[in-house]
């Protein structure tokens, strides 16, 4: 079990996963108008931002548009970033604000996908049979739908912290900075969100939940 725990924890990237000096240099160059440096920053964070917005909105097209808006806005307002090392949190905050602005302060209501209709096994989802370890685990399309549905059904404030912690693997400190809530509140919300998602996945998977060969 310890190995699995270690794996779970090691996937987490407490910071941006880049050398702070390098990040500082890149942000400084971008601040002085160097688009090449900014393109490197895009290379580092573009996918993260895209996936964050995608999980919040549930629409790939919207996510692409809002991701582009986020980076254009970030470049224009780079001067307002005081601490270069906090570039990632700052960028996530811009992305979040773009989503809020688009949906007028309210998180989008994502249409749920009825997983029971798509399955052929009478409501029970068949799990992938062969899995050697967490790295090798490949989720079936249906299983991914289950997880996405569970995320979609989360209340707004839980969805936000859940995506940032479980999918983006950001540190609690960074999440607190992004969502603008206290560390204690974030910690508590993350726990509640995880329990809710777990319960929903458990509900869909039935007896298959917790099969040891899955992870």
């Amino acid at each position: 079990m310890k190995e699995k725990e270690h794996n779970a924890a090691s996937n987490r990237t407490p910071s941006s996963g880049i050398d702070p000096d390098r990040l500082d240099a890149l942000v400084n160059s971008a601040k002085s108008g160097d688009i090449t440096a900014f393109s490197e920053l895009y290379g580092l964070y573009g996918k993260k931002i895209l996936n964050y917005i995608f999980r919040l909105t549930g629409s790939r097209e919207e996510a692409e548009d809002l991701m582009q808006d986020t980076f254009v806005l970030a470049f224009k307002n780079l001067d307002s970033l005081k601490e270069n090392v906090k570039f990632q949190s700052w960028l996530f905050r811009i992305a979040q604000n773009s989503v809020f602005q688009k949906y007028r302060g309210k998180m989008p209501q994502i249409e749920s996908i009825d997983v029971h209709d798509s399955g052929e096994s009478g409501g029970v989802i068949e799990l992938p049979a062969s899995s050697k370890g967490p790295e090798d685990t490949v989720l079936s399309a249906e299983l991914e739908k289950i997880v996405q549905k569970a995320i979609n059904e989360l209340p707004e404030k839980y969805r936000q912290v859940f995506v940032l912690s479980a999918l983006q693997r950001l540190s609690y400190q960074e999440i607190s900075e992004i969502v603008g809530r206290s560390l204690a509140s974030v910690k508590s919300d993350i726990h509640r969100a995880r329990v809710e998602v777990r319960d929903k996945i458990k509900e869909y998977l039935g007896d298959d939940y917790g099969m040891s060969n899955l992870y």
């Binding site: 779970a8 996937n11 996405q148 995880r194 998602v197």
Partner: peptide, 11 residues
């Protein structure tokens, strides 16, 4: 909790 965490992490 760890099981669901790993499932979600593999999306």
């Amino acid at each position: 909790l760890l099981f669901s965490y790993n499932l979600v992490g593999n999306i």
